[in-house]
Amino acid sequence: MTDQLALPADVLANIQRRCQMSRTHGQPMSLKSSKPSASATKRHRAASSQPATDSSQPWTPQTARWCCAAARAPAAAVAVALADLGAGPRIHEIIVDDHGTWTVADRVRPGTPLSRTDPTTVNPQKLFAPLASMRDQPAPLPSMPSVLDWLRDRLEDDSLTDLRPGTSVAPLHERQAALAVLDDLVRDHVPGLCHGDASSGNIIASGNSRRMYIDPRGVAGEHVYDVAVLSIRVAQAYAGAEVVAIAADIAGVAEERLRAWVQVASAARV
């Protein structure tokens, strides 16, 4: 979420310098800020809408400082990984200070979120393809919060308030069944690259047909979980269609595992 913010002087100086470089090279930028939150559900969200460096660029002190900043901000590290895959906008700067995590990124145009778009007008291939690129990608940091723990906290919370629009806390029996499914998923779970919050507000239009993913949660997990969340969000728009089967095919995931993740995400009201 982009806020109206009073920037610390050192952050503002960096932004002004990078924006001047942007104008020189004709690359529009946008500023996103994310401030770490401490919630009962251990939700780690130093979010941003950011991208990555070109691996062909030389290793410089600037690059080293930039990578160190990403290492201190899990969400920024995920955003960098997404950008490397072309699934998110390119990042120009990551700044971590006492006020939070700040990122300078390419501005995505038109930038219309899926939440403000009729999903039936969006090609499912374009929608799920960025998630397919995340398959078998490692977590960007060696030690990150887990989406599994975050989901378990939600499923065990009888008073959950951060709910998917139009829903209420799932009945106890539904959450208990989902916890059993989650336990099954954990058995062969390998922590990898995961957006963690593939809701319709975090998927924006780039050009005429591309979709980019912004504001990751900053967790390790499975990209199949992201496919599940998006499947839930667009299911009503594709009434009569087998959304899960379509999504599994496009994203290159096992349909049975995807259905298991859909059950967990649905009960957690993600």
Rank of each mutant, 00 (worst) to 15 (best):
L185I: 13
D188M: 01
S159K: 08
C194I: 07
A170E: 01
Q176P: 00
S159T: 12
A170T: 10
D215Y: 00
G196F: 12
G196S: 13
N208V: 07
N202G: 07
S200M: 07
L182V: 01
L151W: 14
P216H: 10
D158V: 01
P165E: 03
V219E: 03
S168F: 02
L160T: 04
R154C: 06
P171C: 06
L148H: 08
V169S: 00
L163P: 05
D197P: 13
R154M: 01
H189V: 04
P171V: 03
G192E: 00
P145R: 09
L185C: 06
R175W: 04
A177C: 05
I214F: 07
D188F: 00
R154K: 09
P165L: 04
P216E: 04
H195V: 05
P145G: 11
P171N: 06
W150E: 10
L160S: 02
L193N: 02
S206F: 15
R164H: 12
T161D: 05
H173P: 01
D158T: 00
V181A: 04
R211E: 02
D183E: 15
S199Q: 09
G196K: 14
A178K: 06
S199E: 10
A177D: 14
P191Q: 06
V147M: 15
G166E: 03
A180M: 15
M212F: 08
H173Q: 11
E174A: 05
A178C: 00
D183A: 07
D183Y: 13
R211L: 10
Q176V: 02
V169F: 00
A170L: 02
A205G: 08
M212S: 09
L182N: 01
D215M: 11
R175Y: 09
P145C: 13
C194K: 11
